[in-house]
């Protein structure tokens, strides 16, 4: 009898132990936010990204299976600036999860940590296309913003899981110092050659361009989210010839046809860059993203993309 009691007590302790070990369930809208959260959360977090690396995060289907993921989340981190406006509200509404209702600690808008670019001045309406009224949402393509967002994620993880606060702080310190060191290296590599001018598909690269000193001369999309008409492509070819632009850049998830045809007609090279973590098999960490982009830009500058 005594032995049985002891066994039961041990079992109960084991259960308590398992519960204490259970990782914080975090759902992020994008693979970039997932990579940052994994980097600072380590084994204390169990992270699921809704948008996959191959997907354009503007256009994700609000699948009921994601509703279940959000339903179980203890923390939901989103990019904000209306990037996920077409699908996230339905997931949150369907999830019936009190931990992540607007205003609660379980819901984090990552964009609050960064300074926005391209915030429209004056009135915004749809004659301007799918414009983001609060600014360009692709801020994680500047590595300095990655550090800021990682900081805000850690702040929230400490609040939700104070038991592991020291671990989160230590991981953040490691992550930011490593990222700062790499950023400095990338900046040196980028400053090696003269300025690069290019045509992009969408306003994906504004933050990257500002950081990397790249000039985006124009866009294949006539207006954000609006596909190019033939006249616009003709104007772009003229502009490329007049300004000597030799590169057309697509994000890995952009459709390739218009970009290819523009590159052919403008005698330019077509460069496909990863716009998010998990874009390609060798881009699994946040730093991989910039390693790949910086290498590609270096090659453009030396004339061999």
């Amino acid at each position: 009898m005594h032995r049985l009691m002891t066994a039961m007590a041990v079992c109960a302790l084991c259960l308590v132990g398992v519960q204490a070990q259970a990782a914080l369930r975090v759902v992020t809208t994008t693979p970039d936010l997932a990579a940052l959260t994994r980097a600072v959360g380590g084994s204390h977090v169990d992270v699921y990204a809704i948008a996959k690396g191959s997907q354009d995060p503007h256009y994700v289907a609000a699948k009921p299976s994601y509703v279940r993921k959000v339903n179980r989340a203890q923390l939901l981190i989103y990019n904000g600036l209306e990037l996920e406006v077409a699908w996230l509200p339905l997931l949150i509404q369907g999830a019936r999860n009190r931990a992540i209702t607007p205003g609660s600690a379980g819901l984090l808008d990552a964009s609050l940590a960064v300074e926005k670019l391209e915030v429209p001045e004056g009135g915004v309406d749809r004659s301007q296309g799918d414009i983001h009224p609060q600014g360009n949402p692709h801020y994680l393509l500047d590595p300095r913003n990655g550090a800021l967002v990682a900081g805000s994620v850690v702040e929230r993880l400490r609040q939700l899981d104070p038991q592991h606060a020291d671990d989160y702080d230590a991981a953040l310190a490691r992550f930011t110092s490593d990222l700062a060191q790499r950023t400095e290296e990338w900046e040196q590599r980028l400053s090696g050659a003269g300025p690069v001018s290019l045509i992009a598909f969408h306003r994906t690269w504004s933050y990257l361009a500002e950081w990397a000193g790249v000039h985006v001369a124009n866009y294949i999309e006539e207006k954000p989210g609006i596909p190019a008409g033939p006249r616009h492509l003709v104007r772009l070819v003229d502009q490329m010839q007049a300004e000597g632009i030799r590169t057309v850049v697509l994000a890995h998830y952009n459709p390739t046809r218009s970009g290819k045809s523009l590159a052919d007609r403008g005698k330019a090279d077509l460069l496909v860059l990863p716009a998010s973590v998990d874009a390609f098999d060798d881009v699994q960490e946040y730093v991989d993203l910039f390693e790949r982009i910086v290498s590609a830009l270096e090659a453009v500058r030396s004339g061999k993309p």
């Binding site: 289907a61 609000a62 209306e82 077409a86 699908w87 509200p89």
Partner: peptide, 10 residues
């Protein structure tokens, strides 16, 4: 449709 951006039901 004009006005507030509708989310797309699956």
């Amino acid at each position: 449709t004009i006005g507030s951006h509708p989310a797309h039901a699956y």
